[in-house]
């Protein structure tokens, strides 16, 4: 666990509050500027490469804390893109985003464009990662951007590269390592958004009165609150497992395999919790929760968008299941019990 966790959480809470408090009032780009001024966008990257220092664990705390307030800023994408670039060259001020490609074919100007580029319209540089190929970076100047949005209304644009040719990033982490770091950070984001949805719901059912008493007095409502709580506990535990597994190995790409299953586990468990928590949060909020004015949707739409971001829950589950089947019961058990956690 990050030794700065409490401090970082307070810092982010104060920042979000200063920018308007509830997610609906916060301008994500303004908040992003504030985060950049403070260097929070590059926590977990070494100072000698232009980062802000601190550990990956500290970054996890930052991502989770921002998400728990229901705000979406490009922290996951840019911190991973910067991490990749930082292996090859010192970081500059350009906003860099990252895209995982399914195939090993490089995008060309004749191609159909890259779908789902996170924050593409704001990005000045793009990192491209494909299985079995070195990562590449390309300047976005001259790129054609067709705006799109994910379920939470965050930019997910179609980008067609017309100008610069992508250049290899020497010494960059492997595709699997990038995917794993994204997996860990998206898990943290989902946990944060789930905490936010839970906090709002708990407060709502304690305040809102029907039949002469708070909703929480209705046993089925109390049961729903408890189910949200245990789902959240499960997601938080899965995230803790993954953080520890990744931290125990250091961050070198060569060590990826050992913590692979811990990250897959975190993605599966946080996604499953996202599904239950979003459903229950809306059910317990009644019609109030479906209005644009009430802040619940800032959390629940992010839960829906982020649970299947980069790779779907189902995909992680099939991968983990395939590994388990190949390892056999003995292998599964040995792996599970290899550590205390």
């Amino acid at each position: 666990m990050s030794e700065f966790a409490a401090e970082l959480r307070t810092l982010i809470d104060d920042l979000v509050s200063a920018e308007g408090g509830t997610a609906g009032d916060v301008d994500p780009l303004r908040l992003w500027e504030r985060l950049r001024e403070l260097g929070l966008h590059r926590v977990g990257l070494p100072e000698e490469r232009g980062g802000s220092g601190g550990s990956l664990d500290d970054l996890v705390v930052v991502v989770e804390a921002l998400a728990s307030r229901g705000v979406g800023v490009p922290i996951v994408e840019t911190s991973v893109a910067d991490w990749v670039v930082g292996h090859a060259q010192p970081l500059d001020d350009r906003l860099t985003t990252v895209v995982l490609l399914d195939t090993s074919t490089a995008p060309t100007d004749r191609g159909p464009g890259l779908p789902v580029v996170p924050w593409g319209r704001h990005a000045q540089r793009l990192v491209l990662c494909a299985p079995g190929r070195p990562a590449q970076a390309v300047d976005m100047a001259g790129a054609v951007v067709e705006p799109g949005e994910n379920l939470a209304g965050e930019p997910r644009d179609v980008v067609t590269l017309t100008g610069a040719t992508p250049a290899e990033l020497a010494g960059a982490p492997s595709y699997d390592a990038v995917r794993q770091r994204l997996g860990l950070l998206w898990s943290a984001a989902v946990v944060g958004a789930a905490q936010g949805a839970y906090r709002l719901t708990k407060a709502y059912v304690a305040e809102r009165r029907q039949f002469g008493a708070p909703l929480l007095e209705i046993p089925a409502v109390a049961s729903g609150v408890a189910q949200m709580r245990v789902g959240l506990a499960q997601a938080e535990t899965a995230l803790a497992l993954a953080r520890e597994a990744v931290a125990a190995e250091g961050e070198t790409p060569a060590d990826v395999n050992v913590s692979e299953s811990a990250v897959a586990t975190a993605r599966i468990m946080t996604a499953a919790a996202a599904t239950d928590i979003a459903r229950l949060a809306h059910q317990l909020h009644g019609a109030m929760g479906v209005t644009h004015e009430y802040p619940l949707h800032h959390c629940t739409r992010r839960l829906w968008a982020w649970r299947d971001s980069v790779a779907a829950e189902r995909q992680w589950a099939e991968e983990l299941g395939r590994q388990a089947a190949a390892a056999g019961e003995h292998g599964v058990w040995t792996r599970l019990t290899a550590t205390a956690y």
């Binding site: 499960q234 535990t237 899965a238 497992l241 299953s261 811990a262 897959a264 586990t265 599966i268 468990m269 499953a272 189902r314 992680w316 589950a317 099939e318 991968e319 983990l320 299941g321 395939r322 590994q323 388990a324 089947a325 190949a326 056999g328 019961e329 599964v332 599970l336």
Partner: peptide, 25 residues
């Protein structure tokens, strides 16, 4: 686990993967 190894079906793999993740937690 044995049945999934034998059948190699996606549905079973997904089920087993989710259960393995839950067990770890």
């Amino acid at each position: 686990i044995a049945a999934t190894a034998e059948a190699q079906a996606h549905e079973l793999q997904g089920l087993l993967g989710s259960l393995t993740a839950r067990l770890a937690v």
